[in-house]
Every structure is written in C-alpha cells, then in structure tokens.
Amino acid sequence: MFTGFDFEVIWTSLPYLWQGMQFSLGLTLLAMLGGIFIGTLLALMRLSSFKMLSYPAGAYVNLVRSIPLILVIFWFYFLIPIALKKLTGNPYASGIGPFYSALIAFTMFEAAYYCEIIRAGIQSVPRGQVSAAYALGLTYRQATTLVILPQAFRNMIPILLTTSIILFQDTSLVYVVGLTDFMGAAGKIARRDGRLVELYLFAALIYFIICFSGSYLVKRLQARYNVGR
C-alpha cells in the first residue's frame, strides 16, 4: 500500500519544517503569556465590586467568546490598518505586519478564555483566606498577589495547560494572513513536491506527539497536586 510514497522528502525539508515549528511554538508561548497576563487582569476586573470594571470586562469576554478565532485574526489584520489610517489621518499608515497582528489577535482572544479559567480559580480560594490576609494588614494588591493568586494558579495549572495545548493547535490558523507556521510549512512542501500524504501524515504525527505529551504532563501535575492537598 505504501509503494510509491517517498518519505525522503520529510528528511530533506526538515530545516524548513523546523522553522515553521519554531514559529508555532513561539507564537503559542507569547500568546499564552500575554493571554494569561491580560486574562488575570480581566478576571480581577470581572470579580470587582465596581460595576465600572466588572461590566466592561464581562462584555468583552462574552463578545470574544461568541466569535470564531479566525474572524478575530482577520479583524486585527485587515481592520487595524484601516483604523490607523482613520485615527492618524495618514492615508499611507500601514498595519503592524502579519506577525504582530496575529500575536495580538491570539493574545486578546485567548485572554477571554483564560479570564474565565482564572476567575474560577480565584473563586476556588476560600473567602476566609482573603479575610485572613486583610486582617494581617495586607492591602488588596498584596492580598491578591501574595495570597490569592498563588493558590488560584496552583489549582488552575492543569486547565491552563490544557487550554494552551488547544492554543498550540489553533496557531495553524495563521495561514489566513499569510504566515507560515509548522502546518503551513508542511502544506507548502506538500504542494511543491506533490507529497501530500507523506507530509500531512508527518504533521499529524508531530502534532499528536506534542499535544499528547502535553496532556500527559497535565495528568501528572493533577495527580501531584491532588496528593499535595
């Protein structure tokens, strides 16, 4: 059945594929860090008793979560240059380039999802811990960063990683703005050399290995934290 297949092409195109993989991993990592940071701020806003903070954060999260990711990527790529032109009045204002617009799109999109996870994590910390922190004279900021968030993140690590694995898979959508990630690189070579089966099989295998190891790590972490409690 496999006669006529040439897996040699994978070997020869490895450097190019590795470039694509570096892009995928880099984008995932940056979007994850940015997403968790902004997601934490959004979560704190949503939990705030000030409606001025909680309403906009809630509206943002609900809006983003009702829109497909690919649309958000499009928006940032095509609408930001238009917006910049309007805002600056400079008809030649260019966008920020496909990479940064994709990075912002992923970060802002994932932030909405991370926000909901982090909000649940913060709420999983007993109220009494907050009272105890305040009773010692800690400020809101100190109580949040020293007492609440460390405990919340400890509870959240598995689900945060799971979300990040999905984010890694989603980075393949950057092809719509002309960027070449691992999937894009595999596709380009597949079409150039007419080796679709070989390269898509290889790509699937690599995605499987990375995501499966990630999920395994999550399971191990979960088991460890459940014991430690």
Partner: peptide
C-alpha cells in the same frame, strides 16, 4: 490596612496560607 495591622485576629478555620 494600617488599622488592621494593629489588631490581631484568629479565625474559626485557622486560615493559614496553605501554599
């Protein structure tokens, strides 16, 4: 915060920081 730092409080459920 300043006021509370001068008043010690002990809770029913201890509320030590587990981490």
């Amino acid at each position: 915060p300043n006021l509370r730092s001068h008043i010690g409080m002990v809770f029913q459920n201890f509320e030590l920081f587990p981490h």
